[in-house]
Design a protein around this nucleic acid. Sequence first.
DNA 1: TATTGTTATACTCTATAACTATA
DNA 2: TATAGTTATAGAGTATAACAATA
Lengths: 148, 148
Amino acid sequence: MGHAEYSNTPLSSRMGFLLVRSALRVRQRYVNELSTIGLLPNQHAILSTLNELGPCHQKELAARIDLDTGDIVAYLDGLAEAGYIERNRDPADRRRQIVSLTPSGTRILAIADLALDEVEAETFACLALPERKAFGHNLNTLYESLTS
Amino acid sequence: MGHAEYSNTPLSSRMGFLLVRSALRVRQRYVNELSTIGLLPNQHAILSTLNELGPCHQKELAARIDLDTGDIVAYLDGLAEAGYIERNRDPADRRRQIVSLTPSGTRILAIADLALDEVEAETFACLALPERKAFGHNLNTLYESLTS
DNA sequence: TATTGTTATACTCTATAACTATA
DNA sequence: TATAGTTATAGAGTATAACAATA
């Protein structure tokens, strides 16, 4: 007299569910760690991308991080106010802003990266090295497929 | 005369970043698909879990889905209003609500599951079958580690 | 680019009621 | 009983972030 059985896909075998739930937990770890530094995860992503690419336009930044072009404005406002980035109009196309890292931004990024390296090491320690590498590779494939 | 080079971990090699970003995209697909049915992703998760476990208490439900015990209330309110679940006080412990699926809830779950099966098939089609299986296994390990 | 508003979600804190254990 | 501590649910407020529409 238990409940009826159905052939529905169980939640725990849905990769989408596992992915979304795991990501929420991981993001929370990012938020907690970065909050002691005064950065939001998306702000760290912006600093990290600027460090990798050098000065670039807001639109390019947004595309690289998969951020909405409207939403990036507020994150940049915060970073500029803290003195971590500078925005300058592109003389070649004055609609555009050229965003660049300041020395202070470079310093805070180094601190944030060290902290996040630790978070990641702890977070993915449940996977042995070969699995972790394969997982990272598959994640990359998935991300590329989802954002292309 | 390029920008300076630093040894910071690049964003694109951070599994946390790839995980969180991919999950946001996948969740959006869930939201879009389920919105035509009138369900939120968390409401689908509730229905799916009830179908798997049979009637159970709110707290048990929340723990299984990794939902905040405060936040589950509103989702259940919506489901009850739509007639998909019933809440009854547990006579053995009147603080508790026993949540159970209605026939109508069972029907909508079947419809939602079919739709989500398609979403998942498309989403993870970028991984070949062996990789997809390994990825799912690793995701499971990660989820268990993060929620235990 | 920037602004505004909406949506989805999680998190924190607090309130209420009901249970448990104990003096 | 009476009291104190705990638990299950509920509600309000806030934070992060995506998305849509518009200026």
